[in-house]
Design a protein around this nucleic acid. Structure first.
Lengths: 237, 237
DNA sequence: TTTAAATTGTGAGTTTTGTCACAGATTCTG
DNA sequence: CAGAATCTGTGACAAAACTCACAATTTAAA
């Protein structure tokens, strides 16, 4: 009855592993070997890939699409921890031992993933130690990002928090245009609020005032044109 | 002119490596080998072990004492990210490549550390792959903790935040007594405030009300007797 | 294309936390 | 052990964000 289980026909097995940063060092032959270890799965928008507390024994790599990782507080408020998109992975804790996930993961759009079992991944790491180092490097990056998030949420003004998230999204999802950077927002206003620990209304108001000041321009609800990157950076300090 | 550089005479080289969780799997002979790679250093209370942005090429292991890892915001507010004590390490990013530290580290009391150079550590990991896995495991634990912190700071009430930190310190620094758990606080009220993103006054007020309600009892400024753990857990939800 | 559903912007009022000030308590040092 | 330095508790007030409500806009679906 699990209608999300299909074989992934949008990517040929050989290619999809190569798109993932942890496998970038492998040659075509090695990638083919990796591809054989991978199981593919598709999720529709809104589907859960993983629920908070779920115990799994595999690593999940996003091959196409976007997902959010989140925790729900007792009072029913959502805190979004990560946006994972093409090339990102989660479930790395499971590589060491079977463990309960610290967060839930939900598809923000049609999403295709590659799943690799703990045991197979461990063998892979033994054969190609570089892969293990790459995972560790990405974990360190993730720590840096969370450390910065904690600082932002603990010490920064609301303007700085909104600026931070816009700059982060600009770097990750922005495309250059004549007037500035066009950001395809992965989240709604409410989602952004849940990402930086504010309410929808507060985010809305701050973005409006940023638009009034000429720093950004909102294009519908799902795009933002970043006009004055420097001004945003300045408001972070 | 660096008066913090001494040889560490409080620990015999053989023992100190064994105290550290990442080396627990090694036998006496192996520990002796590790000990030879280690440089010792002492810091007085208030001394900086590492400043934000400093580039190093070694891993630092706390052998005795306590340090805080922190970031300072543009407006001069401090966000404390970690309390590292005996057995904890930092600088793990440097194992992969020379990188700027994301945070400063300051001794909260007389602290002795073991320093091991990147290259030597990498050789060690090649010889004992278990050590690499152990480091990765601890990084995952640290990610979990930060993820929980972000959730706490983003969605929780002030009561929940104060309760969280008290329970965390109780687990880490608490000692059982007849009436409850006695916590030796590593931080002042202001430090606690900077750890959970509040002001000193707010923390002070919340703790006073918790004492009035019989959940805790403050013993001077540096100890807290935890009387009703369940009540604190309940306020987190 | 039209309609329904979902998302967003904004005002008014409330609540909460931060700020400032200072007295009192605790801790450290000589 | 005494005095100095530091840290803490608390009141009054200000500022900021949250809540609630609803109209307007945007997006998705039929």
């Amino acid at each position: 009855m699990d209608n999300s289980l299909y074989t992934c026909d949008s990517c040929q097995h050989k290619l999809c592993a190569g798109r993932v940063s942890i496998f970038t060092s492998l040659n075509r032959e090695e990638l083919t070997k990796v591809a054989k270890l991978i199981v593919h799965k598709k999720y529709k928008k809104g589907e859960l890939l993983l629920y908070e507390g779920e115990v799994r024994n595999d690593l999940i790599i996003v091959n196409k699409g976007q997902v959010k990782a989140f925790k729900n507080s007792a009072e029913g408020r959502e805190q979004i921890l990560y946006i994972f998109s093409e090339g990102d992975f989660f479930g790395e804790k499971n590589l060491l031992r079977d463990q309960a996930s610290n967060y839930g993961v939900e598809a923000l759009e049609e999403t295709h993933v590659c799943i690799i079992h703990k045991d197979k991944f461990q063998k892979l790491v033994q054969e190609y130690p570089y892969i293990g180092l790459k995972v560790m490097e990405i974990l360190c990056q993730r720590l840096d990002r969370l450390e910065n998030t904690v600082e932002t949420m603990g010490t920064r003004t609301v303007d700085a928090r909104v600026s931070s998230v816009l700059l982060e999204f600009a770097d990750k999802f922005g495309k250059p245009s004549t007037q500035g950077t066009i950001i395809d927002l992965p989240l709604s206003r409410e989602g952004i609020a849940n990402y930086i620990g504010l309410t929808r209304e507060t985010v809305s108001r701050k973005m409006s005032s940023m638009q009034d000041e000429g720093m950004i321009e909102m294009i519908g609800n799902k795009k933002i044109l970043l006009l004055d990157r420097l001004a945003l950076e300045k408001s972070i300090g």
